[in-house]
């Protein structure tokens, strides 16, 4: 049976690679739709036609789009991300530090939200229909149906304006002590944890409820097994696949949340860099950031599928 798992996983990886090519194609051509000539924009209105023509050749702008795409994609694969239009720095240098900042934020959020969400999701499913379950369900629907920036502004209002525990929007970029560290991370992490946990609780609860509805759980109940035993011994092992899948999928919501959270709290991460790049229309930078996000998203959803395949007991 291991052979079957291997072939399923390999085919999923192949699909991921094909998707990546299609996505990079889409990102490249979306940014090609920019009206106007890049060389003219860079040099300004006063540039001589010779200068514009020279820059066009230097930037390979006079080649067909497909050749430029191949060149760009080749650069991406080998780690050469090109040069920023706005400040002439290599994009790899601009991104490196920011990328690590964003990863830290995402990592800390995952560290908090996964245990919280799994506990709430599984217990809510166990006590289906109880007051506790209703409260959890209503809260998660509430968080899911409002925009991320509202979660962020509500957190600021609660923790900074009314309780005065944390500073509102002013954030120091220099971290000297543990209190500084808490100040920088607290609000963004709280906001992202809310956004991601809500999705995760909902999916986990659904996965466990679905398993609890199966005939073998009913059988265990008829045998006289205790509720704890039913959930831990009979339901959870089978719900593991869907739960792991749910966790990976919900973590992909981090990507959307991170864009808003970094902007609102002025956090020096890659999403903030990208939003600023949109303002200055720095296309190579936008393309690179967009690809990083797409790759991250693709890795998470592929991981979700692969984990679901691996943890399916029927395939073993």
């Amino acid at each position: 049976m291991n052979h079957r798992i291997l072939s399923l996983v390999m085919s999923r990886l192949l699909i991921a690679v094909i998707t990546l090519v299609i996505v990079s194609f889409a990102v490249f051509f979306a940014t090609m739709m920019l009206p106007g000539d890049t060389a003219t924009i860079l040099l300004g209105q006063a540039a001589t036609p010779e200068a514009v023509a020279g820059l066009r050749t230097a930037m390979h702008l006079d080649e067909p789009a497909i050749i430029r795409f191949m060149r760009w994609f080749g650069g991406l694969v080998t780690g050469d991300l090109g040069t920023s239009y706005a400040n002439d720095m290599p994009i790899a240098d601009l991104i490196a530090g920011r990328f690590i900042n964003t990863l830290k934020l995402a990592g800390v959020t995952a560290l908090f939200s996964v245990p919280i969400a799994l506990t709430l999701g599984i217990t809510a499913a166990m006590m289906r229909g109880s007051l506790y379950d209703r409260v959890v369900t209503i809260l998660t629907i509430g968080v899911i149906s409002v925009p991320e920036f509202m979660v962020a502004t509500s957190a600021v209002l609660l923790f900074a304006v009314y309780l005065k525990w944390l500073p509102a929007l002013s954030i120091a970029n220099e971290v000297h002590s543990i209190t500084d560290l808490l100040r920088v991370y607290a609000m963004p992490v709280i906001t992202l944890t809310f956004v991601v946990s809500a999705q995760m609780i909902r999916m986990t609860r659904a996965a466990v409820v679905e398993t609890l509805n199966t005939p073998y759980v009913e059988m265990a109940l008829l045998k006289g097994a205790s509720p704890q035993r039913i959930v831990l011994k009979h339901a959870l092992p089978n719900a593991l696949g869907p739960i792991v899948n749910a966790v990976a999928l919900s973590l992909s919501y981090l990507l959307g949340g991170v864009i808003i959270v970094e902007t609102i709290f002025n956090y020096p991460g890659i999403a903030k860099l990208m939003v600023d790049a949109v303002a200055t229309r720095d296309l190579p930078l936008i393309q690179s950031c967009a690809m990083i996000f797409c790759v991250g998203y693709l890795i998470l959803i592929t991981l979700a599928d692969i984990l679901a395949i691996l943890s399916n007991p029927r395939l073993r």
């Binding site: 299609i22 996505v23 889409a26 009206p35 990507l255 959307g256 790049a277 936008i286 967009a290």
Partner: peptide, 24 residues
């Protein structure tokens, strides 16, 4: 199905950002 699946693996907010950056 293949094509639309690939499209849906671009995060929505990011897609919006890229298009708005490109076309205004």
């Amino acid at each position: 199905s293949r094509f639309l699946d690939a499209m849906s693996s671009i995060p929505s907010k990011l897609f919006g950002l890229v298009v708005v950056a490109a076309v205004g």
